[in-house]
Amino acid sequence: MTKKKMLRLFFIFFIIQAILSIGIDYRLNIGIHPESGRFSIWNTAHPMTIQDRIIEEFQPDQYVKEQGITPKIYGSEKLYQFFENIFGNQAINTFSLLRMLLILNITLLVLALLLNKKLTLIPKKGQVLFEMIHSFFYELTSETLGKKFANFTPYVLTIFIFIWSCNIIGVIPIPGFMEPTRNLNVPLGMGLMAVSIVHYMAIKNKGIGPYLKGFTEPFFPMAPINIVGEFSKAISISFRLFGNILGGAIILIVISSLVRFILLPVGLSLFFGIFIGTIQAFVFTMLAISYIAVELYE
């Protein structure tokens, strides 16, 4: 089949889809019909409204409570009880977040171990890629912080790789795969870590007296505003990441419900996952470096 024919088929399918989606709450199916046993296209009533789907995706505990279902993701009732005793109202949310973080960390660890094992003086394909990434961030760090503080490169590279892989893991179409950065706790933790490194560097560089005196500038009554400003650094750096990723996820759910999960969501998922995810990971890294740079050279 040529490219043109494929495109035309998709286009026809898309038009059928659009016509069918005028009747609200119907879902298009394609495949073997369960009754006649033939290959055909038919539509069935959709079991969930958009509201229900958003609540199921973002507040699963509330959804489970409202519908009165026992959650299946744990495998057994005992495990669910165990998690509910610890996390209370947020059991399912926390469980899926921890599962995703575990998957991510194990993947990154295995990747690092595999790459470390095969290091050669004349690099091969994988090694070249990672050396390029490393040298890009080494240059970025040494340009912004100066050659003296180029030892910040591992930290910078780590937060970039972690946030980037967090952002793009939602692209993989497996049920239950969510971006860990969609949960506010992950970006907030990264942001607080970055801001505490900034303040540690400030104290180490200036000494404790001038550091405390910096809060009373330009005059003493401004001190509360300056302290709120420091907190707003952590808030703005972490809510930017959180808002972008959460926004992408919500827009994806609503739009895929409107077009009945066909064609459009794939492109949108790639846009939000890869493009916006990469840009936001880079912005987070750049902001963390430049907050440190401001404290070092003030």
Binding site: I50, Q51, D52, I54, I55, R240, G243, N244, L246, G247, G248, I250, I251, V254, F275, I276, I279, V283
Partner: peptide, 25 residues
């Protein structure tokens, strides 16, 4: 293109809030 995508961030935030207001229960 990159700068336009970043400029759109505010509009994406508003789209999210309005979708939440419309469908978010």
């Amino acid at each position: 293109l990159v700068s336009q995508a970043v400029t759109e961030t505010g509009a994406i935030f508003s789209l999210v809030i309005s979708l939440l207001l419309l469908f978010g229960g």
